[in-house]
Amino acid sequence: MKILVPIKRVPDYDTRIRVKPDGSGIVTEGVKFSMNPFDAIAVEEAIRIKERLPGAEITALSIGTEESVETLRVALAMGADRAIRVAIDADMDSLAIAKVLAAVYHREKPHMVLMGKQAIDDDSNQAGQMLAGLLGVPQATFVSKIEMGQDGATALCSRETDAGIEKVQVRMPAVITTDLRLNEPRYVSLPGIMKAKKKPVEELTPSALSVDCVSRTRVLSMEAPARRKAGLRVKSLDELIDRLKTEAKVL
């Protein structure tokens, strides 16, 4: 079984994001970058599947700048077997990314694509679904539990929806996108890091894959959202209820 895990390097969830004064983007100086948390969950899940199905091979894939190789090394240190970087120097939108992923998919022919449901920088939540559409394969999105069928030909996936949990049975090959509660990713170990150094990282380009990756969306500018006015500390429940009734008029 071959599992393809696309991953993205993003500003760490714990860093403060600030918009540049000219609105051309976010300040990246001094910002820590990490693997998108949902992608780390996808890597972890792939490793757990491999632990149950020995012989499985995990390929981590990142479409990004030179620095994304560092993020791929983290996936390798966690336990992925090999890595591919598709080199791009400017951001691409989800559809363009999905087209590159589809091209790599056709080259690698995995049984399953496991990826994060959203990247916490763009917050678009599109790429996995678009990939599944381009490939014409089933999808299970926002998944918090995966039960692989005996032969690995199907997976029973629990999806987190607005109404609650929905369980779907998907036939492989399929695209599965991860939600937060699927697992807790392991920390990388020192031996893991040492081993990762010897694992192969292949470099590709969109043109080598013959993908047209023109983005349809273009970010013209960014701004910080309006800040809420500092509020009031009330001294008691009485005062709170009174102000909600007479001042805010919401009760």
């Binding site: 917050d123 969306t217 959202p225």
Partner: peptide, 15 residues
């Protein structure tokens, strides 16, 4: 809205 609500971006969409 993106970046966990930290950024509002203005976006153009072609096609």
């Amino acid at each position: 809205v993106q970046f966990a609500g930290n950024v509002i971006s203005t976006v153009q969409l072609s096609g």
